[in-house]
């Protein structure tokens, strides 16, 4: 009996922990499929986490905070595109600078609003969704399947990434498609961050994204930019992270640091299992 209970608990914690990771990976999918290599996922997650906790504190309610986070995420995506697309800077550089910028803006905002660069005030327990995050994830996942495979926009995204000249000559604008994709990416990754600070935790704390954006990127690359595979690889990484927390709880003979490194080692091992180069250089 207690073993089934443990198993259920563990599955639940995998699901919970996978949430931000999966959303970030699916967000990165849109950006990368449309031709913008997305290193800024880490920043988008952190921004989402900051917005989530801040807005929930200001509005005393989750739904408007969620909407506001989506809007801020989308605006951040557009800002990203101003530099990577309109000003034609290298997307990797823009991504790294974007991460740096968010890492600087987050303490600035918390200091101004809450008088501290540490975590935001804790949210009261009634501000806690239990089911909605999974509904949202399902919505993003199945919505993505539909949009990418069944709509004209999905076709445009593919071409924007693989043969931009083709859609230009068909009378569409690559710029517009990439713009839309980055806004989408920012919004989805923002919700991932939102759940990080309001669902996995109940406050924002500095650097709480802890490299998840990069792990999401690794998931995307390992899944070779395929939607369903990306989802499952991200869940697999979530499994490793949940394992880390679970094993830490047991008094194991292995040191804590071993488990801290586990998700990152797992990422490397998974990349090692890649037989042939994922893309040609």
């Amino acid at each position: 009996m207690s073993e089934t209970r443990l198993l259920i608990d563990f599955v639940m914690s995998v699901a919970r922990i996978s949430l931000p990771l999966t959303l970030a990976a699916l967000a990165g999918f849109w950006s990368e499929k449309s031709g913008t290599f997305q290193v800024g996922l880490e920043g988008f997650l952190l921004l989402g986490a900051l917005c989530g906790a801040t807005f929930a504190n200001l509005f005393h309610s989750l739904a408007p905070a969620f909407a506001a986070t989506i809007i801020v995420g989308a605006i951040a995506g557009l800002l990203f595109f101003v530099f990577s697309g309109l000003l034609e800077l290298d997307a990797i550089l823009v991504g790294l600078v974007f991460n740096l910028l968010i890492a600087g803006v987050a303490p600035y905002v918390t200091k101004l609003l809450f008088g501290s660069t540490a975590s935001t005030p804790f949210l009261p327990p009634q501000l806690h969704w239990t089911v909605f995050p999974y509904i949202w994830l399902a919505f993003i996942f199945f919505g993505g399947v539909f949009v990418f495979n069944k709509t004209g926009f999905g076709v445009l995204v593919r071409f924007a990434g693989e043969k931009p000249a083709a859609i230009e000559s068909a009378g569409y604008s690559v710029t517009h498609v990439r713009l839309a994709c980055l806004a989408l990416c920012g919004a989805i990754a923002g919700t991932g961050g939102f759940f990080l600070s309001t669902y996995l935790a109940s406050s924002y704390s500095p650097m709480m994204s802890a490299g998840r954006g990069f792990i999401a990127l690794a998931a995307l690359i390992f899944a070779r930019w395929r939607w369903t595979q990306t989802f499952f690889v991200a869940v697999l990484f979530g499994f490793f992270e949940a394992l880390e927390i679970y094993l830490q709880g047991l008094s194991s003979p292995l040191p804590v640091q071993f488990f801290q490194a586990l998700p990152y080692v797992a990422t490397l091992v998974i990349l090692l299992l890649n037989r042939k180069p994922a893309f040609k250089w």
């Binding site: 290193v39 990797i92 490299g211 990069f214 990127l217 690794a218 690359i221 990152y264 080692v265 990422t267 490397l268 990349l271 890649n274 042939k276 180069p277 994922a278 893309f279 040609k280 250089w281």
Partner: peptide
């Protein structure tokens, strides 16, 4: 063929 950004970050 793993991107160096990922591996070095890990």
């Amino acid at each position: 063929g793993a991107h160096e950004v990922i591996t070095s970050m890990m």
